[in-house]
């Protein structure tokens, strides 16, 4: 009874569930990453996939764009990538006798930025500024980016030669950072046997309209309630990272906001009108871990484990 009422109050949830279902069916063994991507999309954030090449990052991004009916752009980052390669540039149009702006790959709903750490810092910040502002200013003219807008960036954590690792301040701009991981054994065997499914992705058709997606985003922002108790819990997590002896710089206020947004999106996906501590807890690691700056001598520390250990110390409000 309660559950049904909730669903009515959360518009377009069924369609998003269908998205999740379709994607999970198409990309076996990537359920969690898919869900995180959708969460990031609903919360209006961007996602950073941190994993070695060849685990299906691009496939995932492609599948997402197809199922969501989004336009898809892709940037393969190299050290000679220029900001203009991302945003687009003006070209002289001989017919009209004037410069015409040719939109770069940025002007897509879904942008896959592959190996973002190979780009020069100059190009990186151009991209990240666009991600944050949702606007691009080229030659004095400001262009709005399409809505919804989702950047799926990838980076390879192993290869460090010739890379420009994203500074922590830039990492803070990604709502969610997660790995993909190898698929389970059986599934991997199946994938190996049947080969790449890129071709099959062409068969996928959109299950949700852009308007519906925008409506869902709005519902996440406006319809999902974040109580004082859960806010308190969330704040305690943020505060705990700031006073932890192993962490030199804890979570920022933006991280707190992002965590709340992500928790809201999670609650929406679960069909709840309110956030529960479990939402926060579930998303704390993907939202928070990559933003932690550990002490200089703690380089090898697994940030996810560190954050999980902090979560274990914080009591969940039960009354």
């Amino acid at each position: 009874m309660n559950l049904e009422r909730n669903t009515q109050n959360l518009p377009r949830r069924d369609e998003l569930l269908a998205v999740l279902e379709t994607l999970t069916g198409a990309l076996t063994g990537k359920g969690r990453t898919i869900r995180l991507c959708v969460t990031a999309l609903l919360a209006g954030g961007n996602i950073l996939l941190e994993d070695i090449p060849g685990l299906g990052k691009t496939t995932l991004a492609l599948a997402l764009s197809r199922v969501l009916g989004l336009t898809f752009g892709r940037i393969q980052c190299t050290s000679d990538l220029l900001p203009a390669d991302i945003t687009g540039l003006s070209i002289f149009n001989r017919d009209d006798n004037r410069f015409t702006f040719i939109r770069g790959p940025l002007f897509n709903n879904l942008l896959l930025v592959d190996e973002i750490n190979r780009a020069m810092p100059k190009s990186q910040s151009a991209l990240l500024e666009a991600m944050e502002e949702r606007k691009v200013t080229v030659e004095g003219i400001t262009y709005d980016l399409p809505s919804p807008f989702l950047v799926v960036a990838t980076q390879n954590p192993v290869e460090q030669v010739g890379t420009h690792p994203l500074p922590e301040s830039q990492l803070d701009r990604f709502l969610i950072c997660t790995g993909i991981g190898y698929p389970p054994e059986e599934m991997e065997k199946k994938i190996i046997r049947h080969g790449s499914i890129r071709g099959e992705l062409e068969q996928l058709s959109p299950v949700i309209s852009l308007d519906a997606l925008r409506e869902a985003q709005q519902a996440v922002r406006e319809r999902v309630f974040l109580s004082e108790k859960v806010t308190e819990y969330l704040f305690r997590i943020v505060a705990a990272t700031r006073s932890h002896p192993l962490i030199s710089c804890g979570l920022s206020t933006r991280a707190g906001i992002n965590l709340a947004e992500a928790a809201r999106a999670n609650a929406y996906l679960e069909g709840r009108e309110y956030v529960i501590p479990e939402d926060v807890k579930e998303l704390a690691t993907p939202v928070g871990a990559h933003r932690l700056i550990v002490g200089a001598d703690q380089d090898g520390l697994d940030k996810e484990q560190l954050l999980r250990s902090i979560l274990r110390e914080i009591p969940v409000p039960l009354v």
Partner: peptide, 11 residues
Amino acid sequence: VELHNGALYRD
């Protein structure tokens, strides 16, 4: 759990 959470986490 649903009833309890529904009240508690909606203040």
